[in-house]
Amino acid sequence: MERSQTVEQLMQETGCSLEHPSATKFRNHVTEGDWEKAEADLTELKSLVHLPQAIVRMKFLLLEQKYLEFLDDGKVLEALQVLRFELTPLKYNTDRIHALSGYLMCRDAEDLRAKAEWEGKGSLSRTKLLDKLHTYLPPSVMLPPRRLQTLLRQAVELQRDRCLYHNTKADTNLDSVSLLMDHACSSLRYPSADTWLQLRGADRSQHCPRGPSRHVFHSFQKRTVSLAQRRHT
């Protein structure tokens, strides 16, 4: 079962909707590359968007992807139609329009992707397009991308912040931790001995608390005439 179908079934069984139905439909149409239907979905989303110019900007992004995909398929005439009769009449971001028109001169799809810094027709470029479109929609309307991963990372960071014996750099990579149990560092990793190194006649001394891994935690300077002192806890 595909992920989208799994999410839909889960929402039906729990009665909990993660996003507005119009947003779900819009997401599916963008993912499938059905640009006419995706553009029509914007009409339904218009009342849910706070910024007046958001719909125009979202439409521009959709048509830009549509234009690039036509060029990627070698359909120059269709791409030109999109540029002239759909993108240009929006009267938005004319600098970008000029840049897009230059891509008509690309030799092939590879040249297009290099000059446009674009991944090409497919799921990767459409996913990035969705990330851009998300910025114009409130989280209550469309679920932000990778929201579950964000929540899990925040949970791990909170556990590490509350860990009494945590003394290493926090790693927020979820692949390196287990979500089956709460994070807790062993007290054996905490420094168990203080070492003072002081040289006669020197202007520097070092205070070096060391743990089992012999990591030095901090040092300071002090004028002293003592030879050496070691204190264990």
Rank of each mutant, 00 (worst) to 15 (best):
D161F: 07
Q206I: 12
R200Q: 00
R57N: 09
E19L: 06
R146F: 12
L130I: 08
L143Y: 06
R223S: 07
M11Y: 08
L87F: 06
R210F: 09
L61Q: 13
V7E: 13
D131N: 13
E119H: 04
N167L: 04
A114D: 05
D194S: 06
F60Q: 09
R214M: 12
L10K: 03
K121D: 12
A109D: 04
L90D: 07
R27M: 05
E86R: 06
D175C: 11
L45C: 14
S140L: 14
V156M: 07
L61P: 00
L87P: 04
G120F: 03
H207V: 11
Y136C: 14
F70I: 01
V30P: 09
F60R: 07
E64T: 15
Q159W: 05
L199G: 03
V225I: 06
V30R: 02
R153E: 14
L174K: 03
L151F: 10
S140G: 12
D111S: 10
R223E: 10
T6L: 15
C208I: 13
Y136S: 14
L199A: 10
E119T: 05
F217M: 02
E8A: 15
L100G: 12
M11N: 13
A40T: 08
L71T: 05
A38M: 05
M105E: 07
S205L: 15
S219F: 01
L180A: 10
H215V: 12
S205F: 07
L133Y: 05
L62Y: 02
A116T: 02
L68W: 00
Q12V: 08
W118K: 03
A202N: 11
E86L: 08
M58H: 04
A193M: 12
R153Y: 00
T14S: 15
F26I: 05
T31P: 02
S140E: 04
S186C: 14
L63Y: 06
E86K: 14
E19Q: 15
H183N: 09
P209Q: 06
L199N: 11
V225A: 10
S125E: 07
L42W: 10
S176G: 01
S187M: 04
D131K: 11
W35H: 03
T127P: 00
E39A: 13
M11C: 15
E8W: 07
S47G: 03
E64W: 01
A202V: 13
E117T: 09
L48Y: 03
D73S: 15
C185N: 01
R231L: 15
Q159T: 11
S101H: 08
S226I: 13
L151G: 00
